[in-house]
Design a protein around this nucleic acid. Sequence first.
DNA 1: CACATAGTGTAGTATCGCTAGGTATGAGAG
DNA 2: CTCTCATACCTAGCGATACTACACTATGTG
Lengths: 112, 112
Amino acid sequence: MRGQSLKGHLDLLLLSVVAGGPKHGYAVMEALRSASGEAFDLPEGTIYPALNRLEREGLLGSDWSVVQGRRRRTYHLTGRGREALAEQRSGWEEFVAAVNRVVGGVPWPATS
Amino acid sequence: MRGQSLKGHLDLLLLSVVAGGPKHGYAVMEALRSASGEAFDLPEGTIYPALNRLEREGLLGSDWSVVQGRRRRTYHLTGRGREALAEQRSGWEEFVAAVNRVVGGVPWPATS
DNA sequence: CACATAGTGTAGTATCGCTAGGTATGAGAG
DNA sequence: CTCTCATACCTAGCGATACTACACTATGTG
């Protein structure tokens, strides 16, 4: 997965993770990693700018807090964020369907 | 689909289309468009450089011909191209699985 | 003759995740 | 007390890659 194959799909992932409950950046990183089964081990330089952008776009909101002396910026999904998530979900479904149609329609030689 | 969400997945699409039989660039464009159900209507500036790159990488081979006064460059899959296609297919499967795990695991409200 | 369709190509742009660096706190090891 | 590691945040610039916008040739049609 090492590649940058998630171009254009990062927002969907981040919104999905935050939809599972408010989280701060570092926690988003870890949640994404574990939820994907270690597939998406994204660096901070990817996560933080993306979260910032999503907040600027009004899809996320954030609150600062201090826990054990460490600053935390906790993000939560806004109403528009929830809408955007739904859109991106269906967009993702369409995308997968379209690629699968091209790739062969038939799933795959069934590993099982 | 308008977006550039296929970043990193274009090679898979092109190799898949060419795997369905040798085609020249213009035909690849059309095959991709129709096979995807109009979802992937990619411009020439995307197709041609990509096909060239795939040939440089040894995944495609090409032969020139002239049909009705028009030059045609017909691409075909090489052995290495076939291997690469298999790899990219399984990479795609993994990618989809990983995203779906994050997005919710459960497919989606089942449109049907 | 103009225009659409077929057919190929490229130079430059824009997008976007990533690299590599910086700041700071707390906990544990030596 | 210092060193290192984990936690926690951030950003400037890079690099990969698809797209825009053009240029060129040829055939057929109005």
